[in-house]
Design a protein around this nucleic acid. Sequence first.
DNA 1: CTGTTAGCGCGTTCAA
DNA 2: TTGAACGCGCTAACAG
Lengths: 346, 346
Amino acid sequence: MAASTLSEVARVAGVSLATASRVLNGSSRKPAEDIAERVRKAADELGYVPNAQAQALAKSSSGLIGLIVHDIADPYFSAIARGVQDAARRQNRMVLLASTSGAPLDEKEAVAAFAARRADSIVIAGSRSVRSEDRQGNGELAAELDRYCRNGGHVGVVGHPIEGAATAEGYHVVEVPNEELAATLAAELTGGHDGDFLIVAGPEGLLTSDDRVRGFQRGLAESGCPEAEVIRTGFNRAGGYDAGLALAHRIKGSKRRLCIFAVNDVMAIGVTAALRSEGVWIPRDATIAGFDDIETLRDFRPALSTVRLPLEDIGRLAAGDENTAPVSGDVKLRRSTDVASENQPA
Amino acid sequence: MAASTLSEVARVAGVSLATASRVLNGSSRKPAEDIAERVRKAADELGYVPNAQAQALAKSSSGLIGLIVHDIADPYFSAIARGVQDAARRQNRMVLLASTSGAPLDEKEAVAAFAARRADSIVIAGSRSVRSEDRQGNGELAAELDRYCRNGGHVGVVGHPIEGAATAEGYHVVEVPNEELAATLAAELTGGHDGDFLIVAGPEGLLTSDDRVRGFQRGLAESGCPEAEVIRTGFNRAGGYDAGLALAHRIKGSKRRLCIFAVNDVMAIGVTAALRSEGVWIPRDATIAGFDDIETLRDFRPALSTVRLPLEDIGRLAAGDENTAPVSGDVKLRRSTDVASENQPA
DNA sequence: CTGTTAGCGCGTTCAA
DNA sequence: TTGAACGCGCTAACAG
């Protein structure tokens, strides 16, 4: 038993298909009120639900907006997703979701699927990678996006342009001042800290991570500090944990105080957890800062110093929302880097 | 400039539309290999992307699965969303997302929108409410779902059936043993605790909250403990925080030890944060347990006692995934209820 | 095995 | 103002 159609409604109301269409779905020309009422009544009785597929086919605009994330359960992405969702609601569209774990080839597949569904626009939220093993994938992704844009699609990318994507019409990137903010963070941290700095970063070639590393190093340099050592690991909590385990010994065996910059909050949490499991306490034995200011992590103790990013706004912007201010962030120094409190219990 | 169509591909390849269709999109009957190759080549040159809308229209199956959550940025929902997403991928479908803040009327709108898009199935993840102000909304939602099911749609609801929904074909609810698990939690907590119990719950009529309250009380009763006082507040972190502020005085002014059960983890975190801001320490001055075992909160200290729920599996089940085991959970007693450690620093 | 044709449900031109 | 007819891009019967 299929849903009732417009022509059934028209038949019941005793009018033509065209008239029914004009009444029920928006049209510039309004039929007479009495006949309109009849149509509405018929539609209601039949429980008519317009077929969006058919509508989309007829007017080639689907009312869909595609969102590509690495992992929807990652709080960074779900915050962005909320923004995209909100923008979509304002635009009377619906959000199509795709998770790809960050593999460019999967992203290409997702773009193709969105294109197949004739999504009006596509948002790509995951960090770009320029690692050599992703080279081919990026190329294919760029080609797919290019085609999509040429066919009238709109693309919003968070952070960095797709490697190799022509700056086509309808393609825009939401700039996130990762480097500047990381530099500011470094500058503010050098104030109260006189030991070594160390960076726990994601794999080289992950642009967001690279930007933050570069910015932090620049900030250190500008404050007259030596370059920080960089540890490469996974761009997630597990990566942070591994790095933390590796660092624990070193911290315990050294008298110089270490200040760790993890390039995102979940990594910082991972580092902290590992250190704690080895008996190293923050901020007593070392200090640490993250990046993103993930909402769910704000009650974490010791409170994590970090850089607040307006993730929801970023999502809105990427989804093409006009009345959202450009991205800016602020450094949030909290207890995890508060050397003065080193002797108090956490 | 629109995307190229199947008939263009057919023309370039010098074959009929039907043949092109058979080659490019799955069909039981396979054309000859040489002709197939020609078609594929033509499609590739033209950058052909099948129009999923048209396909859906023709075979009346959209390959879409609709997901309704209160808030995608809430870790509880994003975990379920990951499961749904995963199931969708296995089924070769895409996920359509809708956020509704839990208002039944919004949920009804979302269901209608999904029905309009001819989603193959719909997952409703948010807790059901039977509050009187939601009565009408629930009724309309039930009617909308009913119609959707009658038209061949599948519906998966997490936790509780929609109030007033006929047990139609294609309608199934993923049972979550909230009550039993809460009872078990209570039983395990009574072991090491000799003070009062108190429950921080969501608004009355929110079924998930009500179940957990009822189960916990039952567990207490079965262990010979008196009924716990219940504080009603918002079903989120802010609600927990408010409750925590209200409780701080009482805890400080009483010599009897208080064990708090917050009906979900984020509320527990809120309570803990508020208590801490008032100088009340967990587990030194009081103990607390939550529910859900949210992944992002596992590194929280003191580690939160809670009930682990397989949220991802719940999502998979609701999305109709066959090879996922039924929902079960376990009590996780951690430091937040560890009275023995009351004197050590958190 | 291939090609022709008729819908899928709707928007939108044209006449009336 | 209303209605008849065509086309959106594709699948699935049928005919060849």
